[in-house]
Design a protein around this nucleic acid. Structure first.
Ligand code: ZN
Ligand code: ZN
Ligand code: ZN
Ligand code: ZN
Lengths: 147, 147
DNA sequence: TTTGATTTGTTACAATATAACATTTTAATA
DNA sequence: TATTAAAATGTTATATTGTAACAAATCAAA
């Protein structure tokens, strides 16, 4: 398959480097999620995947999603049961998203470290942090209409 | 029904004050979630509810969950599809949880305000924040075994 | 005691996700 | 090159989580 975008190339390189196979389902699912402006559900991915593969079933979509997610190329938005391309150059322990509850747009922001007040909470509780996920809900600039 | 715990009494008072009905499904579901040491799924709530009500169906559990959640007495842990009693005296815009991926225990902590680095992100994006949810994954003190 | 709002009961189904096992692909090994 | 074992996919079936729609009951106010 022809490599279509820089992102596809990046993931191809990553897989080559790490010895993973960048198979058709993985490429197509990455492309589908990357092209989506908003978080996209697994079954919508599956439906679009059907234009590229012959009659794919849920596990095909879910496995590719799992692979891409494990390696940080996409993220799951937990409060939406949906997936979005990493907008912060993958491989980070924490994610933070601003989710517009009106138009559905999601903006990922990157903080290298968890903010100190939260770190303090984990220290106080002797909690050994491995990853974090922050989902901020509200109204985006475009949707916001002051009264 | 007899009022069993201070929490039940608190919610009863709140409902009286606000003009909501603190019906049996709501009381029982609150009690079930409050007694659970760990986040509990809707269908497990439903199963336990079956010991109190005659053959309840999913909407009965989900409606009570929705009510209690809307009014801040319980929270949904998005990454677990499960519900937990509010450990921070309800009515807060933001939640933060430490989730032990080994034993499943969840500890809620309270920050009155979103940490400044995150507030700055929302300001920069002109994002109008309404609520936030922070889910910290890791290993709790009890489960942690240093090498 | 009628009325209207709130809440629940009930049926059916939608949406999301995974278990289990057969088959194929791939690259390393013999 | 033929063999093998790991990785990945195909396929079938099903589990899990959540909701739409409408009828019936409850409750408090008019
Ligand atoms: Zn990212
Ligand atoms: Zn918006
Ligand atoms: Zn709380
Ligand atoms: Zn633990």
């Amino acid at each position: 398959m022809a490599r279509e975008t820089p992102l596809i190339q990046d993931v191809a390189d990553y897989c080559l480097q790490k010895g993973f196979r960048f198979t058709e389902p993985r490429q197509f699912v990455l492309d589908i999620i990357a092209r989506s402006k908003k978080p996209i559900g697994a079954y919508e991915v599956l439906e679009k995947l059907g234009k590229k593969l012959k009659n794919p079933k849920p596990p095909t979509a879910y496995r590719a999603i799992e692979f891409l997610s494990e390696h940080g190329f996409i993220h799951r938005i937990e409060s939406l049961n949906a997936y979005i391309i990493c907008q912060s150059d993958h491989l980070h322990k924490g994610s933070q998203f601003m989710i517009c509850d009106q138009c559905g747009t999601v903006l990922e922001t990157h903080l290298c470290d968890l903010p100190e007040p939260l770190v303090k909470k984990t220290r106080d509780a002797h909690f050994h942090l491995t990853r974090w996920n922050v989902e901020l809900h509200g109204i985006c600039q475009t949707c916001y209409k002051p009264v």
